[in-house]
Amino acid sequence: MKYVAPSSVEEATSLLSTSPSAQVFAGATDVVPQLRAGRSAPEVLVDLKKIQELVSIVKDDTKWTVGAATPTANLTEDQAFSEEFQGLSEAAGLIGSDQIQNRSSLGGNLCNGSPAADSVPAMVVNGVRAVIAGPNGTRVLDVAEVVTGPGQLSLEDDEFIVEFEIDRMPERSGDAYLRMIPRTEMDIAVVGAGARVTLAEDGSIEEAIVALGAVAPTVVRVPEAEAALVGNTPNEQTLSAVAGAASEVCNPIDDKRGTIAYRKQVAGVLAKRAVLIAVERAQQRNGMK
């Protein structure tokens, strides 16, 4: 096993296209356990953290650009980002302990391909785009399109994510992410639920996005919940529709962390709660409450 730390995107892509068995990593918080368990045995370990744009947080008038290898601690400690994207910041802050937070990244969390990755539903509801570098230049893909199944990515072997683009939060909007774990920390989500809403001037919901983690092979949107919310307020009836739709859209498995029945039921509960928090944040941000 050979360790290399390219200093530019070009150097990294050329390394990847010439190395038959290379593993890119940022924090290695998933890679090391996989190596130890013998689940992968790359010949080359490519450390992406020395490439400047992969470890940066930049804001302009229209969007945030977050380097794919940026430690999630940098993101959660960035006050402006965390105030604007409370849900995404909290989701990023749920990835493991403080120790892990100094290593884990949005890029790693996404590219590990786990259906339970906490930051992914929060990125999906915020319409985050991944900028992907490869031997032929870069391309842009919605985060929702990156993972195609457990451990399966739509990236080629010689591609990697450089950065994420996150459009600035619209007015009267808020996001939220909740996860269920048996402990309070240090667990993999049994169910995760992200929501983002934009309110109309009259306070009703103008736009809603709901996405669930850990309840299907990939993160799933809940269109029926979104439809039930639009044009309504989060009253008992719409929330119950959200919960029902969330439970319905699930396609979970029974495993050591939870059962199908449990995941379906709790997906509804968390979707409902996440919507409520997102609405509350949208209201607070705009002085409605």
Binding site: Y3, G27, A28, T29, V32, D47, A73, Q99, I100, R103
Partner: peptide, 25 residues
């Protein structure tokens, strides 16, 4: 595997689990 924290060290003033860091890093 980064789950127990017994190997915690500070690297450039940031705490991390040294079992998840490759030595050359």
């Amino acid at each position: 595997t980064g789950d127990c924290g017994s190997c915690s060290v500070m690297i450039d003033d940031k705490v991390t689990t040294s079992c998840l860091v490759f030595a050359p890093e």
